[in-house]
Simulated assay, not measured.
Amino acid sequence: MDFKDQVDLDASQVEDAGRGGGGFSAGGFPGGMVIGGGGIVSLIVLVLVFVLNNVGGGGGGESQPSQGRPAADLSEQCKTGKDADQNERCRVVGVVNSIQSYWKGELGGDYSQARTVLFTQSVNTGCGAADSAVGPFYCPNDRRVYLDLSFFDQLHSQFGAKGGPFAQAYVIAHEYGHHVQNLSGQLSNGNSSVPVELQADCYAGVWARNAVETGFYEKPFTDADIAEAIDAAAAVGDDRIQQRSQGRVDPESFTHGSSQQRVAAFQRGYQNGGPADCAQSKLG
């Protein structure tokens, strides 16, 4: 997953808010307002006590005070694809640029950009206050993706995924899938459901198939890159998380789909390469 060294990055699409950043009122997430609640892992909320040992994100509780990380000006750090290959935050910029370039080309005037906000530990959003335990998520109220980069360490250490740059790209592409759903009216009152989440996985696969055409990457993604995404999708299937956290699986309580469903949804998008192949009626 190599960026073109000289391709220009648009760092304005990603905001580094530091710790406790964001310009919206706090107060906890109103029910059903956060789409994804981490996108591929919104069900983290279900297993906070068991897996992350942290009760907070989405519950309206106060985050514990700690040494903060100041906000950073990414425009000074992230100028070219070479920066994206060398710096994790710049890699996020490059991925976001490519994703939004694809969807703008696909949807034209129906697409409007969504900024990604990087934060540490806690953040205020248009959907309320959140902390890192929520995982990556998309807020339809302010049309932003929120991401604490520490999640990628948790993806490996807590959920057993192998990780890697393309696993990260998959997470981000999934969240932007929710943004596309929001713009196209495919979200029902802001509520997550298995078909909605599987469609976002499929949209991530569609971007992956077409990413090289956005001009940000040297060449199409390798089988090893795609394997990172598939491994991440499997790791955060409802069945895998429930088995790890509860010792049993309850399909009736699935919110995102099983490991098999999530992998299949991503592969459908990647193999077919068109958003029309991601109709919710075709997934599940």
Rank of each mutant, 00 (worst) to 15 (best):
F166I: 03
W207G: 10
S188K: 13
L183K: 13
Q186F: 00
Q186P: 01
G205N: 04
H174C: 08
Y203T: 01
A208V: 11
V171R: 11
V212I: 08
S184Y: 05
E175W: 09
Y203C: 06
G163N: 10
A200L: 05
A173Q: 09
A208S: 10
V171I: 15
Y176K: 12
A200T: 04
V212W: 01
N191G: 01
G163A: 05
H178S: 10
E197F: 15
L187Y: 01
H179M: 07
G177D: 04
E175N: 10
S188V: 02
A208N: 04
V171Q: 08
A167K: 10
G190L: 11
Q199T: 00
T214E: 02
W207Y: 15
N191T: 07
V212K: 13
H174E: 10
S188D: 02
E197V: 15
A173V: 13
A208C: 08
Y170L: 11
A173H: 10
T214N: 07
G177Q: 11
P165H: 01
Y170C: 04
G185R: 13
G163K: 15
G185H: 13
Q168R: 15
G164M: 07
C202D: 00
S184H: 11
E175K: 13
A208P: 09
E175C: 11
E213N: 15
R209T: 03
S193D: 05
L198K: 05
H178T: 06
D201I: 13
G185F: 14
V206Q: 03
N182S: 13
Y176E: 06
A169C: 05
A169F: 12
L187T: 00
A169P: 01
V194D: 01
G185A: 08
G190Q: 09
S184F: 06
E213W: 08
N189H: 11
H179Q: 09
W207D: 07
Q199V: 00
V206H: 07
E213T: 15
G185W: 14
A169T: 04
A204Q: 01
G164Q: 07
A204D: 01
Q199F: 02
A173N: 07
G164C: 07
W207L: 12
A173F: 13
P195H: 08
D201L: 09
Y176P: 08
V180F: 03
A173E: 06
H179I: 12
A204W: 02
G190R: 11
E197T: 14
A167L: 06
E197L: 14
I172H: 12
E197K: 10
A211F: 11
G163Q: 08
I172T: 07
P195Y: 07
G205T: 03
S188H: 12
V212D: 00
A204S: 15
H179A: 06
C202E: 02
G163F: 06
H178D: 04
V180K: 04
E197Y: 15
A169I: 09
S188Q: 12
G205P: 05
Q168D: 10
W207E: 06
A173K: 13
N189Y: 14
N189P: 01
A169L: 05
V196F: 02
P165S: 02
S192A: 09
A208F: 13
Q186V: 04
V212F: 04
G190D: 08
E175V: 14
N182R: 13
D201K: 07
C202T: 03
L198A: 05
V196W: 04
I172Q: 14
V194I: 12
N189V: 02
P165Y: 02
I172C: 12
N189K: 13
N210M: 02
P195R: 11
S193W: 09
V180Y: 05
R209G: 02
A167Q: 08
R209Y: 15
